[in-house]
Amino acid sequence: MEFLSSRVIIHPRDPERSLAFYRDTLGLAVFREFPGGTVFFLGNGHLELSGRGDREASPDVALWVQVRDIAEAAAELRGRGVEFEQEPRLQPWGLHEAWLADPDGVRIVLVEVPPGHPMRLDSREPG
């Protein structure tokens, strides 16, 4: 089986409020729009807001979003009114993380991968 593309789909309880959050507050670029939905670029993937949900977000699900500079990203988001559940800090596993939530409570972790972290290293055998 070959997977060609992927995206995360969120059914927000208030589509206009979530659209404004992802587009204007987080500053995600729109990939495409269609009746009843918007798809955003999200790093190497996509995030789709479509339909209307009627349940609380599960605390078991989070969006993992890598940024180049977490301090800069956090300052920019604070300037747009974002309140963090966890301020940026270095985690025991070596990543800088900050946690926030969208208007429906979908958890979002901003991650900076510092130089020298195993995620930045080429694990292929030399040669």
Score class of each variant (00 low, 15 high):
Glu87Trp: 02
Arg17Tyr: 00
Glu85Ala: 15
Pro126Ser: 12
Arg13Asn: 05
Pro92Trp: 05
Arg68Pro: 08
Pro35Cys: 12
Val39Ser: 10
Val82Thr: 09
Leu90Asp: 14
Val61Arg: 12
Ile9Leu: 15
His46Pro: 02
Ala62Asp: 10
Ser123Glu: 12
Pro114Asp: 13
Glu16Met: 14
Glu33Ser: 11
Ala73His: 01
Val111Phe: 03
Leu47Asp: 03
Asp54Leu: 12
Val65Thr: 08
Arg89Lys: 15
Glu2Phe: 07
Gly127Cys: 08
Trp93Phe: 12
Val65Gln: 10
Pro35Val: 11
Glu97Tyr: 03
Phe84Thr: 03
Asp24Asn: 13
Glu2Gly: 10
Ile108Tyr: 02
Val111His: 04
Asp104Ala: 06
Glu83Ala: 14
Asp24Ile: 04
Arg13Trp: 00
Thr38Asn: 03
Val113Tyr: 02
Glu48Gln: 13
Ile108Val: 13
Val111Gly: 07
Val106Ala: 14
Pro88Arg: 04
Phe21Ala: 05
Asp122His: 03
Phe31Ser: 03
Glu33Asn: 03
Phe21Tyr: 06
Met1Trp: 02
Ala98Tyr: 00
Ala101Thr: 06
Leu28Trp: 02
Arg89Val: 12
Gly43Thr: 03
Phe84Lys: 02
Arg23Asn: 06
Pro126Lys: 13
Val65Arg: 09
Val65Asp: 08
Gly116Phe: 08
Gln86Thr: 10
Ser6Pro: 04
His46Thr: 08
Val61Ile: 13
Phe41Met: 12
Arg78Lys: 11
Gly94Met: 09
Pro114Thr: 10
Glu97His: 09
Asp60Trp: 06
Phe40Cys: 01
Arg89Trp: 05
Val106Trp: 02
Pro59Phe: 03
Pro126Phe: 07
Arg32Glu: 15
Ile10Trp: 00
Gln86Leu: 13
Arg80Trp: 04
Val111Glu: 11
Leu28Arg: 01
Arg13Met: 03
Ala62Gly: 06
Ser18Lys: 01
Asp104Gly: 03
Ser123Lys: 08
Asn44Arg: 14
Ala98Met: 04
Phe31Glu: 07
Gln86Tyr: 05
Gly45Trp: 01
Glu48His: 11
Gly45Cys: 09
Gly27His: 05
Glu72Ser: 07
Thr38Ile: 04
Gly51Lys: 01
Phe21Cys: 08
Arg32Cys: 08
Glu48Lys: 07
Arg68Lys: 15
Val65Ile: 15
Glu112Gln: 11
Leu63Gly: 05
Glu48Asp: 15
Asn44His: 11
Ala57Trp: 01
Asp69Met: 03
Asp122Gln: 09
Ala101Cys: 08
Ile70His: 00
Ser6Ala: 14
Gly116Glu: 14
Ser6Trp: 06
His46Val: 03
Arg23Met: 05
Gly37Thr: 01
Pro115Glu: 15
Gly116Val: 11
Pro88Ala: 11
Pro118Trp: 04
Asp122Phe: 04
Leu110Cys: 09
Pro103Cys: 09
Ala98Thr: 00
Ser6Tyr: 09
Leu95Asn: 10
Asp14Ile: 03
Asp122Pro: 02
Pro92Arg: 09
Arg68Glu: 15
Gly94Arg: 05
Ala20Trp: 06
Ala74Pro: 03
Ser5Pro: 06
Ala20Leu: 12
Phe41Lys: 08
Glu72Tyr: 00
Leu49Tyr: 00
Leu42Gln: 07
Arg68Ser: 14
Asp24Thr: 07
Asp60Ile: 11
Asp24Glu: 15
Arg124Glu: 11
Ala98Glu: 04
His46Phe: 10
Arg124Gln: 11
Ala62Leu: 13
Ala20His: 12
Glu16Arg: 13
Val8Thr: 15
Arg52Phe: 02
